[in-house]
C-alpha cells in the first residue's frame, strides 16, 4: 500500500486545534495524534492539550553541562595553581577560594550555555532537508498540520480538514 504525506494549511489556529482534537477523538480510525506534526509561524503551547504531552529533554543536558563546568572548573583551577607554585603570593594562599569561586561561576555558565545550545541543535530535529510539502506560508501566517498516512486514510483526512476550513491541502507520495 502506498504511503502518502498530507499537509493541511489553516488560516486560523483554532480551526487547526479543532481538527487535531477531532483526530484525537478518533474521527479517522487508525490515525492518532502521535502521527501529527504541527507547523506554525509562532509557538502554540496550547496545542499540547490535544496533541498530547511531548517531552523536552534539554534541561537535563543543561544541568549536566553546568555541573561539569562547576566540578571540572574547580579542579582545573586548583590543579593549575598547585603545579604553578611560583605564582604571586601577595600574602595569599596558593589555592584561594574566593577568586576561584568567581571563575568557577563563570565556567558553570559557560559550559551550561554551550551544552544547552548543542543539545538544542541535536534534539530539536534541525539540519534536515525541508519536507517536500513545506510551504512558505507556514513562516508567514498559516498553520500546517502534517501527517504521513496509508492510502486508505487519505480521503477521510481530507474531508476532516475541509470540514475545518483548511485553506489549502497538499499531498504527495512518500518514497519507499
Amino acid at each position: 500500500m502506498k504511503r502518502y504525506s498530507i499537509m493541511a494549511l489553516f488560516g486560523d489556529f483554532d480551526e487547526a486545534f479543532e481538527a487535531i482534537a477531532d483526530i484525537r477523538h478518533a474521527a479517522v480510525p487508525g490515525i492518532t495524534t502521535d502521527d501529527v506534526t504541527l507547523k506554525s509561524p509562532i509557538e502554540h503551547p496550547e496545542i499540547e492539550e490535544v496533541l498530547g504531552e511531548r517531552p523536552v529533554h534539554i534541561q537535563k543536558f543543561t544541568l549536566g553541562g553546568a555541573l561539569f563546568g562547576l566540578i571540572f572548573g574547580f579542579f582545573f583551577l586548583a590543579s593549575a595553581q598547585a603545579t604553578f607554585l611560583v605564582q604571586p603570593q601577595g600574602g595569599k594562599p596558593v589555592i584561594p577560594l574566593p577568586s576561584n569561586f568567581v571563575l568557577v561561576y563563570e565556567m558553570l555558565i559557560f559550559f551550561g550555555v554551550w551544552v544547552t545550545f548543542f543539545s538544542f541543535l541535536f534534539l530539536s530535529g534541525l539540519f534536515r532537508k525541508p519536507h517536500p510539502l513545506y510551504s512558505e506560508k507556514v513562516s508567514l501566517d498559516q498553520i500546517g498540520v502534517l501527517l504521513e498516512v496509508d492510502e486508505d486514510k487519505l480521503q477521510p483526512l481530507k474531508d476532516l480538514f475541509t470540514k475545518h476550513k483548511a485553506v489549502e491541502i497538499r499531498e504527495g507520495v512518500l518514497q519507499q
Partner: peptide, 17 residues
C-alpha cells in the same frame, strides 16, 4: 598527577601569610 597533588597538599596550599 596534579589532582593528587591538590588533594594531598590541600592544607599546605590553603595557608596564607
Amino acid at each position: 598527577m596534579s589532582l593528587e597533588n591538590v588533594l594531598s597538599n590541600w592544607s599546605k596550599y590553603r595557608r596564607g601569610a
